[in-house]
């Protein structure tokens, strides 16, 4: 690990300035991904700006009645929040399906969205990887890619996004809020992670130096019984082989509306739009699903 300076900030503007000032600066939140990758030699910041003391923690009601989750809220606090559990149970489930109790106590919402892929070649600087060093090639394409992308990949990169939380957020059409020195902005989660194309190093559309301040959820989900289901190689403490977040609005036995997002299958939470279209307006029964019974 390279030597670095460390600063803890309490003002958003101070954080933005420190990061803008120096190319090698990075925000540090829970550190569960950044410190890990620094140990692997994948990340080598020269300055860490610790954002955990910024006034960005907690879950509150937004002006439109939706939920606003502060960027530094820990994953544990998101999952345990009564309103999240009541209105967006799939989000609580998704967060709880990720990592471990210890890691969720450290990990934050902002850091979770920006965690890097778990592709083994990416984490090993002695291997070629277009995402880590553009133009070096993708070791996974011809290598072991058992758990890599099945949707939206390119020859340049077949990695998946590892976040469980983001899958549920995608199903709820959440919006990411950020600040920069030139002002703030918001990005719908469905547009937050761009297609891989030939720029796998371009993982989000967040402006450079931007600080995520919050994620907002709409006033109401389609239903109060949204669910998250994760399949993995062991029963807990493992990344997804595949996961699904689904929210189904049913009225009189008819699927009024439906949102489905898949995890572990693409470089972004994958909205299953055709499946949604297929189900929408149809009968809400098991038989609807091809191969179901």
């Amino acid at each position: 690990m390279r030597e670095f300076a460390y600063q803890r900030v309490t003002q958003v503007r101070e954080a933005l300035t420190l990061v803008a000032e120096n190319d090698g600066s990075r925000y540090l939140a829970g550190g569960t991904n950044l410190v890990d990758l620094m140990k692997c030699g994948v990340e080598a910041p020269t300055r860490l700006v610790d954002v955990r003391s910024l006034p960005l923690g907690g879950v509150r009601e937004g002006a439109d009645g939706g939920l606003v989750i502060g960027a530094t809220t820990t994953n544990s606090d998101v999952a345990a929040h009564p309103e999240v559990r009541r209105r967006f149970p799939a989000l609580s489930q998704a967060v709880l399906a990720g990592a471990s109790g210890q890691l969720r106590n450290m990990a934050t919402v902002g850091g979770n969205l920006l965690q890097r892929t778990r592709c083994a070649y990416f984490a090993d600087p002695s291997q070629a990887c277009n995402k880590r060093v553009p133009g070096t090639g993708c070791s996974a394409v011809d290598g072991a890619h058992h758990n890599h992308a099945v949707f939206g990949w390119s020859r340049h990169c077949v990695a998946t996004h590892p976040s469980d939380m983001a899958v549920a957020l995608a199903a709820f059409d959440a919006v990411v809020h950020y600040e920069t020195l030139d002002g703030g902005g918001e990005i719908p989660l469905s547009e937050f992670y761009p297609p891989v194309g030939d720029t796998p190093q371009q993982e989000t559309v967040l402006p450079s130096g931007a600080l995520i301040t919050a994620v907002s959820l709409p006033k109401a989900a389609l239903s109060p019984w949204s669910r998250y289901r994760k399949v993995r190689d062991r029963a807990s403490y493992a990344f997804a082989n595949v996961s699904i977040a689904a929210d189904l609005g049913v009225h009189d036995g008819v699927v009024r509306d439906v949102r489905i997002a898949l995890g572990g299958v693409a470089s972004q939470p994958w909205r299953a739009r055709s499946a949604e279209a297929f189900l929408r307006g149809g009968p809400a029964s098991f038989g609807t699903v091809p191969g179901g019974g």
Partner: peptide
Amino acid sequence: RDPVSGRHI
């Protein structure tokens, strides 16, 4: 193992 390099992945 990586089928190309023979290394543990």
